[in-house]
């Protein structure tokens, strides 16, 4: 598989795929991910209705969508869950779950989804798949939404951070390229509320054994880029700090 060809799904690590869309019309690229464990799959932040056909086609290239048991919605924005109602249709499972924090669920209810909700804070901030693979959720409150969460997959050391560690820049690619660090600073300055909130959350995340960060915008961060990103953001003045 050509990992530079973004029209393909990209296997980031074994059984975790980037299924997003690369398009020229937007600087804000969205990154949905698919995690497969035996005959069960979980889709993270399925994306907007505009991206739905490509995302779904990519999912279909990897698995039968019917094996998706849950959708993780890190927060309620339209670029995260605008396509959810149609994704539900395609998956077509009565037991499909939407995993989110209750602060997010309150808002999701207004989309009129059919599936039942799985509020993370009432389920010990974790979800165990049939295979026994356990996903952990971390409350990243106010970054940048009151119900924002991140997902940690201990098996692969993968951290799905949603808007955290995101970046917006020209000539984007899912892999780090020129402009990433400035793009990450710009993004956090604009969308994160303050350094104090950001910092305390990052200190918490840093305790995890992280092999890669998969943000919903921006690039996949691995190796030394992880520490570099933490260092950048820990000191970054953002949101109301700039007033």
């Amino acid at each position: 598989m050509d990992t530079k060809d973004l029209t393909n799904p990209i296997e980031v690590v074994k059984n975790i795929y980037w299924v997003g869309v690369s398009e020229n019309r937007s600087v804000l690229h969205c990154n949905p991910y698919l995690l497969v464990s035996e005959d069960e799959a979980i889709l993270f932040d399925p994306g907007s209705i505009r991206h739905f056909p490509v995302v779904m086609r990519k999912v279909m290239e990897i698995i039968d969508p019917g094996i998706i048991s849950a959708l993780v919605v890190h927060h309620q924005d339209p670029d995260v869950c605008g396509s959810l109602a149609v994704v539900e249709e395609v998956i077509n499972r009565d037991d499909l779950k939407i995993i989110a924090h209750t602060n997010t669920i309150r808002l999701l209810e207004h989309y009129g989804f059919k599936s039942s909700y799985y509020p993370v804070e009432k389920n010990g901030y974790s979800y165990v798949m049939k295979s026994g693979r356990k996903l952990e959720f971390i409350f990243t409150r106010f970054l940048h939404s009151p119900g924002a969460i991140a997902t940690y997959d201990p098996k692969t050391g993968t951290l799905f951070t949603s808007d955290l560690f995101g970046a917006v820049f020209e000539n984007w690619s899912i892999f780090p390229s020129e402009g990433l660090w400035d793009g990450m600073a710009v993004w956090h300055r604009t969308y994160m509320p303050s350094n104090s909130i950001l910092k305390s959350c990052l200190e918490n995340l840093r305790k995890l054994d992280i092999n890669r960060i998969l943000p919903q915008h921006g690039c996949i961060l691995e190796g030394e880029n992880i520490a570099k990103a933490f260092d950048l953001l820990m000191e970054l003045k953002c949101g109301i700090d700039l007033d």
Binding site: T7, I49, P53, V54, M56, R57, E61, S83, V90
Partner: peptide, 12 residues
């Protein structure tokens, strides 16, 4: 791929 995406567009 084109067919699949067209179908998903139709679904939506």
């Amino acid at each position: 791929r084109i067919t699949a995406e067209t179908e998903f567009r139709l679904v939506a």
